[in-house]
Design a binder for these strands. Structure first.
Lengths: 340, 340
DNA sequence: TTGTAGGCGTTATCAC
DNA sequence: GTGATAACGCCTACAA
């Protein structure tokens, strides 16, 4: 068994109250001599307070949780890096979990988080934009609320809660405008699952750009994938079989864009000479590929850091919803050909 | 405040003892009627046991921890995915942390883990093969041992502890042999930091393959990088400037290989026509690149799952060190040219 | 400046 | 079959 506060008290020849005061830097005065004695005892026994006991007493933990869709995707990995690093810098540990968008798993996590009395929760991926999902999520959030715990979304959830994210629509719009400026008029849009909020937002932005250029939306040129490498490859390969009429492919995510470039080449066409390809993300992954992907850079690490900062800061006005919007930036590679 | 066992007892009109028995499926008999009453009360209040109280009482947690070097690297992301999924399937949560190989941070984590009385610890990345690091790590492990906590390494740590990993030397050897079989006789070896155990193991394997072919090791053709995308790019670019005499580049890690391919192309050479490139890893990342990378496939997800399984299984013979070795597999892409 | 004692929510040992 | 009660390790009024 590890040492308890009582062992330290005995070793130092003082009461446990005094030891507690030293540990917590209590405002209650402790003479310098006693403090020294206690500190010596603590060091000698290598005593570390039992966090469960502290939590039980204070109903207060230094643990936050991060729910990611797919940790093997550097997109979430980069968020996770920012979150866990920022957290540990404040002495806070992070539960990290992978849901793969399985709603049941997500709810199981919520239950455990509630039991562990975590201090804050970060929702990493976009939620499903379905009435069912929104309802369940809202219920879970209600439960958390009864304790004073903050929840921050890093992607749209379909319900209005505190968030630290980018403007997904504006980001996609900017990317699309880049293609349009370079003369592309027929663009295949490859998005993720069509019931995910983030996916919908980005698609909206794309359509807005088309509208700006007075172009009609051709629904045949909008397809959805399951966001996996192989899934995107398959879907785009089969679209290519139908003798495409488009000059560019807009992928709403970098990994999909990389996979799509592979599919285009395997079909016997060149990027960007025959078909241009762009993505959204900007992770190193896509910046060392061939060709280098033109994409929108999302500051994922910074988003993670900021989320933790907000999470650990009590809200001044609890009823006001906080929204931090990080800027994104066009990052030109050489996967796009100018048509004029 | 959340409800406590006492609230449930009141609601059901029984004692807290009885409630506890129901919650824990105690062997102590409880009449069917009482059980029903209690279950109803639990459901009504949506009661969830306070884990801190349970832990305090039982000195037993259902939390494990995973230390990763770089979560934004899909290599660790894939491990993390396997670990967190396998854990939650057993009702266990996972602390996940990113150290970036900063030893101080690592020690801070150990301290917190100790306080949280976690149940098991998984070391994700290779340790530094320095006396200092080995000593500190051994000390930390000693502390954990005083409680009965398992520690499992997913990469060599320089000290002998339970592990679930691949045979790094054999894997590199096999990759090198593939190059040698295809006629390559002068190969540039690009490894990670030279004081990291994993890096050293893989280099050993490479040298062993050379020996098999009666080739001398040319130390000028062995270089080390910091394992970052940009770092590898820089280093290899400058080596290329010196008019290389090699026909292939062996990278001890896929991301580095991708970055190296970029450097080779930017220098004006073709992969694989002018220079062949291989890696180690086998994540999707490198299987959708251009050209597709020839590499050794490591079952990272499975390694994570297995590690959790072992972690949560008490050792039958505590003094016997357990070693699970996962097989790796050559995955041929088209980044290698046959020279004969 | 120091110490005593009660209680946080559980589980386990008793007694009934 | 059921229920008091002590104890886990800590913090914090309240006393001294």
């Amino acid at each position: 068994m590890a040492y308890s506060i009582e062992d330290v008290a005995k070793e130092a020849g003082v009461s446990i109250t005094t030891v507690s005061r030293v540990i917590n830097n209590s405002s209650h005065a402790v003479s310098e001599k006693t403090r020294k004695k206690v500190e010596k005892a603590i060091k000698k026994l290598d005593y570390k307070p039992n966090i469960s006991a502290q939590t039980l007493r204070q109903s207060y933990t230094n643990v936050i949780a991060f729910i990611a869709r797919d940790l093997s995707d550097a997109y979430y990995g980069e968020m996770a890096r920012g979150i866990t690093e920022a957290a540990i810098n404040r002495g806070v540990l992070s539960f990290v979990c992978n849901t793969g968008r399985k709603t049941d798993d997500e709810m199981r996590y919520h239950e455990l988080f509630n039991q562990y009395r975590i201090r804050g929760l970060i929702l990493g991926g976009g939620g499903f934009n379905t009435a069912q999902y929104r309802k369940t999520l809202a219920e879970e959030i209600e439960k958390y609320k009864s304790r004073d715990l903050r929840i921050i979304a890093l992607a749209p959830q379909g319900i209005d809660i505190d968030s630290v994210m980018i403007d997904n629509a504006a980001t996609a719009e900017k990317m699309a405008e880049h293609l349009l400026e370079l003369g592309h008029r027929s663009v295949l849009y490859v998005g993720g699952p069509d019931n995910v909020c983030t996916v919908q937002e980005r698609l909206k932005g794309y359509k807005k750009a088309l509208a700006k250029y007075n172009l009609l939306v051709n629904e045949d040129l909008i397809i959805h994938t399951d966001n996996t490498w192989s899934g995107a490859y398959e879907v785009v390969s089969s679209v290519l079989e139908e003798k495409p009429s488009f000059t560019a492919i807009f992928c709403d995510n970098d990994n999909v864009a990389l996979s799509v470039m592979r599919a285009v080449k395997d079909y016997g066409l060149r990027v960007p000479e025959d078909i241009s390809v762009v993505g959204i993300g900007g992770l190193p992954n896509s910046q060392y590929s061939s060709p280098i992907l033109t994409t929108m850079k999302i500051p994922l690490y910074e988003i993670g850091v900021k989320a933790v900062e907000r999470l650990l800061t009590p809200k001044e006005f609890p009823d006001v919803i906080e929204r931090f919007v990080f800027p994104t930036e066009l990052q030109e590679g050489n996967s796009v050909k100018a048509l004029k």
